[in-house]
Amino acid sequence: MTATKPQFDAAASRTRCWQMRKRILEISQKVSALHIAGAYSCLEIVDTIYHGLMRRDADGNSPDTFILSKGHGSMAQYTVLENLGVIKPADLNLYCQPGGKLATHPDYGLPGIEASTGSLGHGLGLGIGMALADNIQKQDRTIYVVLSDGEMEEGSVWEAMLLAPSLGVKNIVAVADLNDFQSLGQTSKILPNFYPFDEKARAFGWEAVEIDGHNPQAVHDAIVARKGDKPLMVGARTIKGKGVSYMENVPIWHYRSPNPQEYQQAIAELDHAYHS
């Protein structure tokens, strides 16, 4: 069965992301804490990869692979998979609760989850191994890996960065969620030499581009436009906590659930922004 690239509708993506932000808020009220801000920063990226780039056959199966290397952003992946019908709403409702299947970090073997992540710096190496296996086995598959900027401080990421082009691996697309925040503050202040980012990726033999990571069309177009003779690194500039004023760029929202009042405010802000 032939898998084809879906038609991408940026307006539909915007609607989905609005709904998913609210769904994540809804889940946040069932648990004492969750990684909300980092899920919000990569939501458009994850949605665009699944809905606009990963090829699907008539049964919805994709030859392509998605790895959320920044595993703490799992709520973005879970809600997208829920939207696609891969994860059941009942399972997402039991997120991090007894009897549920879905944990804070994605677990290999669960529906739609192709790697166990949560410890940073693992996903890219895995993805490159998959990509090379696909070359050996002559399989036409693309591997999408979403990383965080804080994660890219791990040396293992740079080992993998150096390795992919050296092995001639081209069928991999990495997207770095550059929200400029990590647990204890701003990446650009903690390790200012992380920037400029795209130049580093290019220096390691990757095709590299930087775009607005909250613009689904920009994410889509940057990946579609890749030359394909090298692995692609997309630096996606984003805002941690995007969409909720009190969460944006405030480190405590890395791992926290809003109280009922904050929850109502967040819903109101998201609705207002969507309808205006």
């Binding site: 192709e114 790697a115 710096g121 693992h122 890219l124 190496g125 895995l126 993805g127 490159i128 191994g129 998959m130 990509a131 090379l132 296996a133 696909d134 086995q137 399989q139 040396g155 293992s156 080992e159 993998a160 150096l162 390795l163 050296s166 092995l167």
Partner: peptide, 19 residues
């Protein structure tokens, strides 16, 4: 993979995940 043992193991895991 060069002198890069983290890459070696992660890479092997990826290969194994593809059979």
């Amino acid at each position: 993979v060069g002198v890069a043992e983290q890459a070696m193991i992660g890479f092997c895991a990826g290969l194994a995940m593809r059979g």
